[in-house]
């Protein structure tokens, strides 16, 4: 394989913080939008924020643990 592969392996971790924030913000925005649509302020905003946080942490750890697995050289998936 070419030179791009090491960079390709690093690229998803370069902006892990940004991705976390984007998950959180999209949860908040989704909740607010649904609130405005259905007139259920402020419940869906709260639910969306919590969901965004949960999703952010979930994806964050998914990426970080997949990095740890690769570095340890263990088999992927477990």
């Amino acid at each position: 394989m070419g030179y791009g592969v090491p960079l390709g392996k690093v690229a998803p971790y370069l902006d892990i913080g940004l991705v976390f924030v984007v998950f959180l913000v999209s949860g908040v925005l989704l909740g607010r939008w649904l609130d405005e649509r259905w007139g259920t302020e402020p419940w869906l905003l709260l639910a969306g924020s919590l969901l965004g946080m949960a999703a952010g942490f979930y994806h964050f750890f998914k990426v970080v643990f997949s990095l740890g697995r690769k570095r340890a050289g263990g088999p992927p998936g477990r």
Binding site: G8, K9, A11, P12, Y13, I16, V19, H59, F60, K62, V63, S66, L67, R69, K70, P76
Partner: peptide, 8 residues
């Protein structure tokens, strides 16, 4: 390995 394992 199905490449880069980045699942985010």
């Amino acid at each position: 390995e199905p490449s880069h394992g980045a699942k985010h």
